[in-house]
């Protein structure tokens, strides 16, 4: 939280939580997929399901999925842009038990059939928290540059990643690990201070035991 979270964000109205936050959720989901999706299925829960049309939550989510930032005037007409850009989408209003009132679960499919499911909430003032990626717990706020690293649960996997980051002079602000099963697939969420050089991401991808690395820049 800094002064620009208070005098800001610059956004398309009408609601920081139901419009700006929704746009950021869609944007982060698209970043995680890493390409222009051809299909989006969006499950809306709680207050999102109740009032999404009046707040333009649907338009904002689709705009984010198309890669438009929260202050992009194209949010207003994003549903038309989706048609032009070849995105097929569907909204489902169905509660997610135990989830924050403003939660969306976004499933995106890329041109080659790759699919990601991202669940997150708009937690107020345009701030978001993505807490689930393909069923695994993550912690992405989009306030700092963040690395999400999918890896095998093997000794040294974490040390290898953090060592590489240390050599690159990148300071870690927060680190979370989620491991649904011992010896299976695990996920690190690493928020850093300042920038993450693209070359660092490439270097991490070729480390042993690393399955996938996603860089989500602050938005």
């Amino acid at each position: 939280m800094n002064v620009f979270d208070i005098i800001g964000p610059v956004m398309i109205g009408p609601s920081s939580s139901h419009t700006a936050g929704a746009a950021r959720l869609g944007y982060v989901a698209r970043k995680i997929l890493g390409e222009q999706p051809v299909k989006a299925v969006i499950q809306l829960s709680g207050s999102f399901a109740q009032t999404y049309r009046g707040h333009g939550t649907d338009k904002a989510l689709i705009a984010g999925i198309l890669g438009f930032p929260p202050d992009d005037a194209r949010i207003r007409d994003s549903l038309e842009h989706a048609v032009d850009m070849g995105l097929e989408y569907r909204f489902i209003c169905e509660g997610i038990p135990g989830a924050h009132p403003n939660t969306a679960r976004i499933t995106l499919t890329g041109a080659d059939g790759e699919t990601v499911t991202v669940q997150g909430a708009s937690v107020g003032g345009g701030n978001i928290l993505v807490d689930e990626l393909n069923g695994m717990a993550v912690h992405v706020t989009g306030q700092s540059n963040t690395l999400v690293v999918l890896h095998k649960d093997k000794p040294g996997a974490i040390a290898a990643v953090t060592n590489f980051m240390a050599y690159s002079g990148v300071n870690i602000g927060s680190f979370r690990l989620s491991r649904p099963q011992k010896g299976g697939t695990a996920v690190m969420t690493i928020e850093v201070d300042g920038d993450i050089p693209a070359v660092l991401v490439e270097s991490l991808r070729i480390l042993p035991n690393i399955i996938h690395v996603v860089l989500i820049r602050a938005v």
Partner: peptide, 9 residues
């Protein structure tokens, strides 16, 4: 009207 604004706060 879904115009651009600065949330403040």
């Amino acid at each position: 009207a879904m115009g651009k604004i600065v949330a403040a706060p």
